[in-house]
Every structure is written in structure tokens, then in C-alpha cells.
């Protein structure tokens, strides 16, 4: 899947322009395969293209965090605009993920 790019130890996930339940089903599948098969440690979510997101965006981050934190992995979030950041913060994502830009 082109949304996922592996780079050494981490998995980079390119989030789509609109994130809803439908989109995240595919992303989740591809990400989980990569995490388990390629044994990546950290996951980076790139929200650079994202303009709209519902709570499924929160779910996909929390779910990956649960998977990788057990093995010492970290979740990072990059390029989130003010709107997306507001949504992520309202769900408390800053407690489990580090924001990088």
C-alpha cells in the first residue's frame, strides 16, 4: 500500500485528505501487517494532506500505540494543521504520541 512507507526502524503512514471509518479500515490493515511482519518499532503518522477527520483518526492512532508500545515503540505525529491538532488534543492524543513538525 502506498500510504505506508518503511524506512529502517519506523513505519511512515501517509494519512489521506479525509479520514473516516472507511479509510481507516484499509490503513489499519496495511499498518498492522507492516508492524507485525517487518517488526518496525516506531510509527509516524503524517497528517500533511489531511483536512477532515472524525474519531476514526483517533482510533487508528490509539490502536497502533497499543500494539507498538508493548515493545518499546513510540508514536509520532507530523504536519498536523491547527484543526487536526485541535481534534487530536481534545481526545488526549498528546499523552501517547509525540508531535513533530
Amino acid at each position: 500500500m502506498k500510504a505506508c512507507k518503511k524506512n529502517g526502524q519506523y513505519l511512515m503512514i501517509q494519512m489521506p485528505e479525509e479520514i473516516d471509518h472507511h479509510q481507516t479500515v484499509q490503513i489499519r490493515q496495511a499498518a498492522d501487517e507492516s508492524i507485525l511482519e517487518d517488526e518496525v518499532r516506531d510509527v509516524i503518522f503524517d497528517f500533511g494532506q489531511t483536512r477532515m477527520m472524525d474519531s476514526s483518526g483517533i482510533e487508528i492512532i490509539m490502536g497502533r500505540y497499543r500494539m507498538i508500545s508493548a515493545f518499546g515503540g513510540q508514536v509520532y505525529i507530523m504536519n498536523a494543521d491547527t484543526r487536526i491538532k485541535k481534534i487530536l488534543f481534545s481526545a488526549g492524543i498528546q499523552k501517547i504520541a509525540e508531535f513533530i513538525n
Binding site: 472524525d54 474519531s55 476514526s56 490509539m62 490502536g63 481534534i87 481534545s90 481526545a91
Partner: peptide, 10 residues
């Protein structure tokens, strides 16, 4: 189901 429970809040 990996639901966030944030639906109504959002």
C-alpha cells in the same frame, strides 16, 4: 472494535 468513544463528543 477499537472504537474511541468520542463520536458524540465530536
Amino acid at each position: 472494535l477499537e472504537r474511541s468513544g468520542m463520536g458524540f463528543s465530536f
